[in-house]
Each structure stands twice: as C-alpha cells, then as structure tokens.
Design a protein around this nucleic acid. Sequence first.
DNA 1: TAGATTGTTAATCGATTAACAATC
DNA 2: TAGATTGTTAATCGATTAACAATC
Lengths: 219, 219
Amino acid sequence: MSKAAIVSMHVIRRLPSYYRCLKELQKNSVNKISSSELSEKIGVSESQIRQDLYNYGNFGKQGYGYDVIKLYNALKRILGLDKTYNTIIIGAGNLGQAIANYTDFEEIGFNLKGIFDINPRLFKIKIRDAKIMDINILEDFLATNKIDIAILCIPRDNAQVIADRLTKCGIKAIWNFSPIDLKVPDDVILENVQLSDSLFTLSYRLNEDDLFKRIKKEK
Amino acid sequence: MSKAAIVSMHVIRRLPSYYRCLKELQKNSVNKISSSELSEKIGVSESQIRQDLYNYGNFGKQGYGYDVIKLYNALKRILGLDKTYNTIIIGAGNLGQAIANYTDFEEIGFNLKGIFDINPRLFKIKIRDAKIMDINILEDFLATNKIDIAILCIPRDNAQVIADRLTKCGIKAIWNFSPIDLKVPDDVILENVQLSDSLFTLSYRLNEDDLFKRIKKEK
DNA sequence: TAGATTGTTAATCGATTAACAATC
DNA sequence: TAGATTGTTAATCGATTAACAATC
C-alpha cells in the first residue's frame, strides 16, 4: 500500500490543470475569472471547480469571481509548489537522461542532486549539475544528503529491489516510471507514470469500435 | 472534445495492469488463475475484475477460474496489441529522443517511421531507423505514409498548432506529452501524458498533511 | 438596491462492491 | 455429487451535478 490521500484523488488530479490555467491567465495579465469562465477553458463543470476548491477554503468573492493572482498563489501553495525539493534519478538510460535534461522541473523547484546507475561506463559523467554515480553508494549518498523524491527509471526486473532500498533509507516519495506495480510502505507516496499503460489505452481506443463490432457478431 | 469511449475510462485504464499481470504469469508458466488470486496481485477487488472482464465477454470457467493463456490472449486482443501501428514523433528534444530510443514499444508493434523538428541542425540524424525531418514536410510525409499515431513532444506554445496540422492530415490518434489541454476533433483519440501534472500531484501529496494542519489553524 | 457569482447543501448519477444463481 | 468460482444482477457507496441562500 501507498499513502492514502485526505482529499479524493479525483480532486487532486484536477488541481494541476487549474494551476496551469491560472498561471497562463496571470501571464496574460487577466485580473479576474469566474468559475464558469474557468469551466469553459479547462473542460470541467463550474460546479465541480467550486466544489473542488471548497475542499481547501474560500478563494473567491460572491458576485465577482476569483482574483487571478490570489487563486494562482493559493493553488501553488496547495500543490506544494511554494517549496523546493531535492531529487535523485535512479537509472541513467534514455528515459532517466531525458528527465535529467528536462530543465523545466529545475526551474519550478525540483533540484536534481544525483543520478545512479549500475553501468560503470557512465560513472562520473555529468548531466547538467548532477553526477552519475554507482548504485552501490546509494545508501551512503542518502545518509549524507537530504533527498525528498526518488525518480525511478530502471527496467522492470530491478525496480522492486531498488524501491525497497530507497524506502529503507527513509525516502518518502517515489516517482515511478518502471512498468511495475511497486509495493511500498504505508507512509511512502508513490506516483506512477506508466508510459506503456498509457500507450495501451491509446491502442485500445483505436480499436474499440471494431472490438465491439466483433463481440456483437460473435453473440 | 476528443472521442468518447464505449466502456468507462475507469475500466479501460485498469486493463493494462491486468494485461501486464497475465503476461508475467504466462512467462512463469502458470496455467490457471482465479479472480481472487488476480485481485491480490493487482490490488483491485475480485468483484471489479470480474465486472470489468464482463464488458468484453466470458473468459473463465465456473469452479475453475481463468486459463492464463486464454485470458492473456483475450486481453491482448482487447487492447489492440495483436496489431501493429505506425508512429511518428514530433519534437526531437530530450523527451522525443528518449521515446525514439525506447525500443520496448517497437518490440510490441509500435513502429517509429519518422521524427520531425524545426531545428535544421538535427535534420538527417537518424535515431535507430527513423530520420529526423523538417517539420515543414510533415504534410507531404503524411500524404505518402500511413501513420496511425502521432507522438507530440514539443513545447507548450506550438503544440495546438501542430495538433491542428496533424488532425487536418487525418491523424486519428495523438499521444500528447506537451503540457497543454489540446483541443482535437470529436473523432480523434487524445491520450495525455502530463509529466508535470504527475509531479505536481506528488508534491501535493508530500504536503497534504501540513496543508490541512495550516487550514485547520486558520479557521 | 439589483445583479452576479460564490459557498455550501441536497439530489442525482455512475462506479464499486456484494450477493448468489448458474455451472464447471 | 460436493466444492469452487464464474457470470450477472442488486445494493451500496462515492463522485458529480444541481440548486439556492449568502453576500459581494
């Protein structure tokens, strides 16, 4: 089991798109927005937007709507984006390197402190400010560096073993790109990005009409 | 709007983890599995597994359970993984290149036919079998090559324009990695992988306890 | 004050779980 | 035949939508 959230995950997963929208509005110097205008932009009902925000407090004014800057800052705080986080990447393959190179995350406060791999040929290579290190020194590294988030980009087979080592060292959040349903302790936050699951969902939907035509015929 | 699915997306998004599990079982030469055993492995209730499968037909035997190979093949077919797909990647930045290099997708039938970018310095570079080409020839390329899925890995600002060009050329499925809520015609399938949204959800959850302590205090 | 829009409760809808008859 | 487990309907639970009082 992974840590359970207080608010429904349905709500939580909508917050980033609210945040993205408010960020854009703010950039465009819009001062004010109503839930019905937001609804149109984001594709979520206005009722749901108000209901979602209601979980966290009152950010609007009756008869007026929401002050863009105020709501933007509220969402930023709610999402924990007013803080910074130290991260490490496990696995310096294509995906690991791509994420290491993706400077957008750095800009918003996710600071990459190191990369780990088993391949000695990669050791001492630097990706931006982060060294690629031997996975064998993982425990030592974590004992002397305060890391908030471990980003797992390794093949399926080793993923659970590495996850166990990470949580044993006190890592409290794993961003998992390995195609496996990891088991982590109750107090650890696990966020999965299953690229292949996403791709399979796409191929499913490309075929759904045909599938049901075939199912109908077979009856 | 993007194309609506026949079966609930809740069900569809569980199918890949069923598929992954059955693939593993098959590899380990397990012959038989019951919904309650599957439930334990996947972390979904046995009732839900039976209910989900029920959408697509009857794959088990009363008093016995499911034949692993039979259910595996059924899921493969349901997910459309018994076919092959031609893909292109738009955007040869870090993420685009990482996906291009990710041979796992190729092995299961997603064949990369080309990569497009605006940066002339990248043209003619090959990533595995796929050339990086000028985005200006996108329309020509699509007129002469049957492409099933476009993988969008470009910055936010151009994403909608490129999506419009793709759908105008008859592309019926977009796997979108750009951090933007794209608008596509009703008959186009849009599958989003919002990496930053996923990371924001993670930072939210790292802070949720504190957040609610603060909210409580403010009352 | 009148109009607008939030905050918040109540009603509805849909997804999940429970139950059990069918049947291997 | 007895035991087990699916297929399938019914009951429950939770999420979304609707409604409207509060109030700017």
